[in-house]
Design a protein around this nucleic acid. Sequence first.
DNA 1: TTTAGCAGTCTTCTATTGAGAGTGCTAAAG
DNA 2: CTTTAGCACTCTCAATAGAAGACTGCTAAA
Lengths: 345, 345
Amino acid sequence: MSGLTERQKLVLALLVRDYVDTAEPISSGRLVANYHLDFSPATARNEMAALEQRGYLFQPYTSAGRMPTKEGYRYFVQQLMGADELPSPIKEMIRHQFYQARHDVDDWLSLSASVLAQQSRVASIVAQLHTEKARLKQIALLSTRGRQVLLVIILSSGEVHQQTLILEELLPQEQLNSMAAQINHLVAGMDTIALEEKRGEIKDTQLEEVFTVVHQIIRASEVISSGDVYRDGLANMLSEPEFSEPEKAKQTLELFEDRVMLDDLLSRTVIESDAPGVHVIIGGEDTWDKLGDCSLIIARYGSKEHAMGAVGILGPLRMAYSRGVSTVRFVSDLMSELVSESLSN
Amino acid sequence: MSGLTERQKLVLALLVRDYVDTAEPISSGRLVANYHLDFSPATARNEMAALEQRGYLFQPYTSAGRMPTKEGYRYFVQQLMGADELPSPIKEMIRHQFYQARHDVDDWLSLSASVLAQQSRVASIVAQLHTEKARLKQIALLSTRGRQVLLVIILSSGEVHQQTLILEELLPQEQLNSMAAQINHLVAGMDTIALEEKRGEIKDTQLEEVFTVVHQIIRASEVISSGDVYRDGLANMLSEPEFSEPEKAKQTLELFEDRVMLDDLLSRTVIESDAPGVHVIIGGEDTWDKLGDCSLIIARYGSKEHAMGAVGILGPLRMAYSRGVSTVRFVSDLMSELVSESLSN
DNA sequence: TTTAGCAGTCTTCTATTGAGAGTGCTAAAG
DNA sequence: CTTTAGCACTCTCAATAGAAGACTGCTAAA
């Protein structure tokens, strides 16, 4: 089966655009009139019938207008869609917001979620992912209250972890400092494997206790995603007509609240393809079935060596893919820029 | 105007219960039959008319059954509602989950949100609030990457804050340690006012830079709420018939996503009343108008001296107040217990 | 190959109707 | 004076029918 004719591509592209705007089945007459096409509605109808034959369009019932199928959207995104860049003033505004924020990855992440939600008018997801090989840079032990001690761990990627411990006996801060110094001296720059080998060298019980926790945390941080997930713009989604049935809305919200699900989604876009750039996943099917009737536009930021994560938007199938891709690309590039700048200082 | 008769109280109480279960206007006949009342539907009708007169009930239209008004719910909660304790096995299960979690306030908070959502079948909110007088316990400076430095601040309450700084020049960890030690020596145990007075004693520029940030953070932490807000169970809400209209659902979701709003809500329940215990706010009116057609059951945990916060649930007006209050009370007591245990170690 | 014309199909809107549910009132009973 | 049976009345809800309208697919001509 050969490809589509130019005119078929035109019809499909316009129909998708129009449907995304109006959320109503598009008729041949409407299409021709709206875009001043130089062929008649009858011709458009013929082309639409052909596109339906190929599975790119469907009619909700005999003799209604047509709407794109998932396949139709996919063809549109892969072959037809042009770039719909964010206007420069908006880009500048966003950039400004980021540079104005504190120099903190967490702040940038929540800002990303907020910006994406606002620009795309759908829901956004942002998460920090973790590098595969975690190497210890240094730790600190800080007395907080009584036997309670805060363990701060800094990885070579610049990532920070903290955890409260309760020690067997009460130790003054000076002693905590010296314990931290000992551990730092022993294991700085090591990954989990090297760390494991050093275990035997530790004699002191208190020290071993701390060592064990450090080891645990570093192992835990080797999991692909384990930090906070930032979400925003949930309310946007409910405005869309596809979520007018509460059942649909509920499903989507559950998808959003399910951490396991999100982790899976995020990690798969990152692991599955080494290719950077924006990924568009349109609707659920086999591997992505949980996605249901939603689409996900997602991109990685950062690099394997540094802090890394994913930013994306989640919306109904009927969404402004072109604008969405541009927005996600812009934000992920900005994050990459910020992260690498901040680390090269 | 005198109070309600016993029979009126009975009718109101049963009607509220029944309506909460069924979400449908309750008729006199139904009420009498369902609860085997020893008076006739006609009598019930008279009582219901009287209750309507007082503003506790209303009919959606002439000759439908009746449903409670906000006032009706308020009367019910304040005067009629008994305790509907959680079953012991469930209490034990929850307790078990908490003691199994890591000894980390953050973990407890997110667990609280999850437990509340699951038990109440509505949405939950949990937030850490801050004590009014923040006193510095100690700080640490940890080199993360290049000129980037992690500032960790521990307050006397045990609260931990962290922030990334970028220093003017690159300093080795040893020098950072000595800077931290100097600051600790200078200002340990001080509040913002005392801190301000010490400013003059600092000569070194780098040191002053750090000092300024420390000061800022402590000031910021004196705001009532500034930490993360944990939410859960949003999807629960959409199952309720009151949110079948997307418009209502959207409003409620927006309320939930609006940090400013939530902060206000939380801080008011904490500031406004020194009384501990569970607060029930039923629907929006003047001071709480943003709440709209939702109710909030909320309680404080912890104490002013220690880590403190609020746990609560947010649902439609038609919600199981009795069970909700018991659940919120149980979780907040549990949190208090955990926090004070953890601090007395 | 394109297009005008038209019959045919399916939805959607409005109006009408009947059934049912529940009330308020009245008058009798306790 | 309180309670209750009886009943007329009101209003919703569901079902039905019919009319209007929107598009299509087909056919035949350009």
